[in-house]
Design a protein around this nucleic acid. Structure first.
Lengths: 218, 218
DNA sequence: GTCTATAATCAGATAGAC
DNA sequence: GTCTATCTGATTATAGAC
C-alpha cells in the first residue's frame, strides 16, 4: 500500500461522493469532480464509462458493506421473535456506523448519498439498487410489518415512507441544519447522535395507534 | 372574463408549476415550459425577466393566499391557550385545502412545490420566502414551542425538521407513492386524506417524550 | 493511463423585426 | 406582445496524440 499515491480512480470516487453530498447528483458536473480531484476531465469516462456508472460505483462502495450486515441484523431480530419498531430501527444504527470503516465520515456521507439517491428520482439508480439489493429490502419490509402488527398493510407502507422522509430530508440538509442548530443552541451534533435522535422520533411515530379510518375511494 | 383565452402569462405560470412539481426546478427548462404552454420561448423573459423570478411568482400565487390564513389560525390557537401538537398541525389543514380555490389541485401542487423549494436549496427562494413571510414563520415557531412545553428548544428544532421532512418527502414523491399504493393495495388516496394521514403521524412523533440526553459536544 | 482538443447538445437570455 | 434567430456559456462524451 502506497500511502502517498491514491489511484486516479479512487481520487475521482472520493471527490465525487463529497460533491454529490453537497450539491446533489445533477448539480455536480464532471468538471467539478475532476478539478476537485486534480485529475483530467477525460479520466472519468476512461475509468467509469459514464456519469451514471460513476454514481452507481460511488454508492456501491457503501452498499456492499452495509447490506449484508443489515440483512443479518434483521434476520436475528426476526428469529428472536420479540420485534418492536424501536428495536428494529435501532438495529440499523450499528451497520450504518460501520461505514466509518469504508471512509472517514463514511456514515454521514452514505446517508446523505442515500437521501439524495432516493429523492432525486434517477431511474437508473432505483433500478440499480432494486436489482442489486432487492432481497435485503424485502427482508426489511417483512420485519417492519412484524414490528407493528396493530397497523394495516397500507398504514405501514405510508408510515415507512414518512419515516424515510424524515431521515432523507434531515440528512440531505444536515449540514445546513447542524450549522443553524450550532449557531442558535451552541451545540455540535455528531452523526451518531443525530441518527439516534431521528430514530427515537420515527420509532414513536411509526408505532402510533392506527388512526380512525379516513375516507378511501376504491 | 374571457373563458376561452388564457393570458400568455398565466399559461406560462400554469405549465411551469406543473413541470416544477414533476421534475423539480433545475430539471425543468424554459423550453420545456414554453412548449408545454404553447407559447414562445422569449415570452418567459418578456413577462418574468428571468427563470428565478418565474419560480418566485409561481410560489407567490399560493403563498399570498395561504400565509394570512395560517397566521390567523395560529394566532387564534395561541390566544385560546389550549395548544397541543395535534391541534396545531390540524390547524394547517384548512388553510392548505383552501388552495384548491387558487387552482384545480392547488393544494397538492403547492405542497409539492413547497417541498421542492425547501429541498432544492436555491438561495434566491429561501431568501424570497424569508423576506416575504418571515413574520408568519416566526409565529408558527412560537406556537410549536407552546404545543410541546416538555421538550427542549433544541429538541423542538430538530423534530420540526423531522416532521417537515416527512411532509416534504411524501409530497415530493406522492405521485410515485400513490401509484405504488394504488397498485399494491387498490386504494386511491386523495390529497386531503394524505395530509391527514401524515399529520396524524408527525403529531405523534413530535410530542413524544424528551429522549434521554445524548452525548453533546459544545 | 493520461493528456489536449473538440464534438454535440442543451441551457438561459437577448436583439430586433413585426 | 409575439416572433425568429442567435448569442454565450455550460454540460457530457469522445477521438487521437503521447
Amino acid at each position: 500500500m502506497n500511502k502517498i499515491k491514491v489511484s486516479t480512480k479512487n481520487r475521482i470516487l472520493n471527490a465525487a461522493e463529497q460533491l454529490f453530498c453537497e450539491l446533489g447528483f445533477d448539480n455536480t458536473s464532471l468538471r467539478n469532480i475532476t478539478s476537485e480531484a486534480n485529475v483530467n476531465l477525460a479520466s472519468v469516462n476512461y475509468h467509469f464509462g459514464s456519469k451514471k456508472q460513476l454514481i452507481q460505483d460511488v454508492l456501491h462502495r457503501y452498499l456492499q458493506v452495509l447490506m449484508p450486515q443489515l440483512e443479518q441484523g434483521i434476520d436475528e431480530l426476526i428469529e428472536a421473535g420479540d420485534l418492536s419498531s424501536e428495536k428494529l430501527f435501532n438495529a440499523l444504527v450499528d451497520p450504518l456506523m460501520s461505514l466509518e470503516q469504508v471512509r472517514p465520515n463514511g456514515t454521514k456521507i452514505f446517508v446523505q448519498l442515500f437521501a439524495r439517491a432516493y429523492y432525486e428520482s434517477q431511474g437508473h439508480l432505483r433500478k440499480f439498487i432494486t436489482n442489486q439489493y432487492g432481497t435485503s429490502l424485502k427482508r426489511l419490509n417483512k420485519a417492519l410489518h412484524l414490528a407493528v402488527p396493530h397497523l394495516s398493510t397500507n398504514e405501514v407502507f405510508w408510515r415507512w415512507h414518512f419515516a424515510l422522509g424524515s431521515c432523507v430530508f434531515t440528512m440531505a440538509s444536515s449540514k445546513a441544519l447542524s450549522e443553524i442548530a450550532a449557531a442558535d443552541y451552541h451545540q455540535h451534533m455528531e452523526i451518531e447522535d443525530l441518527i439516534k435522535k431521528v430514530i427515537h422520533y420515527i420509532a414513536a411515530g411509526f408505532s402510533a395507534p392506527q388512526p380512525e379510518k379516513v375516507r378511501l375511494v376504491s
